[in-house]
Amino acid sequence: MKSILIVDDEEVIRNGIRRTIQKQFPKHRIHLAGSPEEAVDALRHHHMDIVLTDILMPGMTGLEFMAILRRHYPHIKAVVISAHSEFAYAQEAVRLGAKDYLLKPIGKDRLIELIANIGEEIDRENKRTLETQLMKSNLNYLREAVFQRLASGLDLGRFDITSFIERYPSFHLVMVRMDSDKKLTLEHFMIENVLSELIEMHGDGFVVSIDNLSLLSLVKLRAGVELEELVGELRTHLKSYLKRVPFKVLSSELLHDLRAIPNELQRMRQASVSKEYEHYDSGGDTAIEVALQYMKMHYHEELSLEKTASVVFLNPVYFSQLFKQKTGQGFKEYVIHLRMEQAKQLLQNAQLKLADIAERIGYQDVRHFTQIFRKKFELTPTEYRQRLVEMKSE
């Protein structure tokens, strides 16, 4: 019996693959995921042997998802499903460890044969490597648990960390912190995967989770590699992967004592408070463009910063910062600008009463409307209307 996860944003495809497999292999457990987020959640709660994943999905490509599998679930056999036959896709899928590359529409006989072959391969490998994998996994968990206790300043008791000290006589700390009100399970996995791969490329170390928004890594760089190089590559990757989630990267000087970790982590957290979150132009521009269009359509309603931020799926604090950066105006200032410009247009119609105009642009109180108008244009609405009459009569 094998556990299989099918990841595809098309429900028809997911269900079709499930029916084909269950008919031929009724004892296999089948799990379905319509998005990378659902797939990551399924992996965290269920043991999987085989994953069949679409190559193009919103939020994360199948190839990016496979990179996560290779890092965190190396025992899983992955099969890529695609409507594209480009060699580059297949080549990258193979590089990431894919057992095969299936083109849509998927032939039933080919799928059944593939699942059978992979199942036999898993059985052979399980007999040889189960004990080794468990030992390696346990050692990794133990190492990360020790590091988490060190970072928190907790007593290690009688645990001997001599080997830990010998392996990391000098090191840097690198922390990534995100900002969001929502659960960031997928983004968390992305950061851990990217940072782990960069550490592996440039030296030795590992990554642990501090909380839902933060990850901390210990990095021992190879000779000739500068920390700025790794941090720069990390920022570049995160700007691409995190899309609309703001983040900040902090790092330490070269440390030579594991006992310095708690104080250094505290310093980095304090520095994090004053350090601005990373902004990325492409996603930011798009979000603000959508927000501006929404504001132009709804300026006459009760328009709050929180509501507008939710329309573009951004944290209100981050949205406020990004809005001012992109427009040069604060959110409330811009709303007033929209309303007052519209008021000037409506005042040209002599048949409209001031109360009607105030209501049309979002103010229930005429007196409040008049005060804001005068503050912005140094004229009351009545005086502005009189000026229009005088200009026409000249």
Rank of each mutant, 00 (worst) to 15 (best):
K2P: 01
L5Y: 11
E11D: 11
I13Q: 01
R18N: 05
I21E: 01
I21N: 08
K23P: 11
K23T: 15
I30E: 06
G34Q: 00
G34F: 04
S35M: 00
P36Q: 11
H47W: 04
M48D: 10
V51L: 06
D54W: 04
L56N: 14
L63M: 07
L63T: 00
F65N: 00
R70V: 02
R71L: 06
Y73P: 02
Y73S: 05
V80F: 08
A83R: 04
A83C: 10
E86S: 03
F87S: 13
Y89K: 12
E92P: 03
E92G: 07
D100A: 07
K104H: 03
P105Y: 06
I112K: 05
I115W: 00
I118F: 03
G119M: 00
E121S: 05
N126Y: 03
N126M: 02
E131M: 15
L139C: 13
Y141M: 15
R143G: 11
E144D: 11
A145Q: 11
R149A: 15
L150T: 07
S152N: 15
G153T: 01
D155R: 01
L156D: 06
E166G: 02
Y168S: 10
F171V: 04
L173Q: 11
R177K: 06
R177P: 03
M178Y: 10
K182P: 09
T185P: 07
T185Y: 10
L186F: 09
L186D: 00
M190K: 04
N193L: 07
V194P: 08
L195H: 05
M201G: 09
M201C: 12
D204V: 01
V208T: 04
S209F: 03
L215Q: 14
V219P: 08
R222D: 14
R222A: 11
L227I: 14
E233V: 07
L234I: 03
L234F: 02
T236Y: 10
K239V: 10
Y241W: 15
V245C: 00
P246N: 02
V249P: 09
E253N: 15
L258I: 08
L258R: 08
L258S: 07
I261P: 10
I261W: 00
P262A: 05
P262N: 03
E264A: 09
A271F: 13
E278Y: 03
E278M: 08
Y280T: 15
G284F: 08
D285P: 06
A287D: 08
I288G: 04
E289N: 15
A291T: 05
L292I: 12
M295Q: 01
M297R: 14
H298W: 12
E302T: 13
L305A: 05
K307E: 13
V311N: 08
V312I: 00
L314Q: 04
N315S: 12
P316D: 02
P316C: 00
F319P: 00
S320K: 06
L322F: 03
L322R: 02
K326P: 07
F331A: 04
Y334F: 12
V335Q: 07
V335F: 01
I336V: 14
H337C: 12
Q342S: 14
A343N: 09
K344F: 04
N349H: 12
Q351H: 14
A355P: 06
D356R: 13
I357G: 09
Q364E: 15
V366F: 00
R367P: 07
L379W: 01
T380E: 04
P381Y: 04
T382I: 10
T382H: 06
T382W: 06
R385G: 06
Q386C: 03
R387T: 04
V389R: 11
E394C: 11
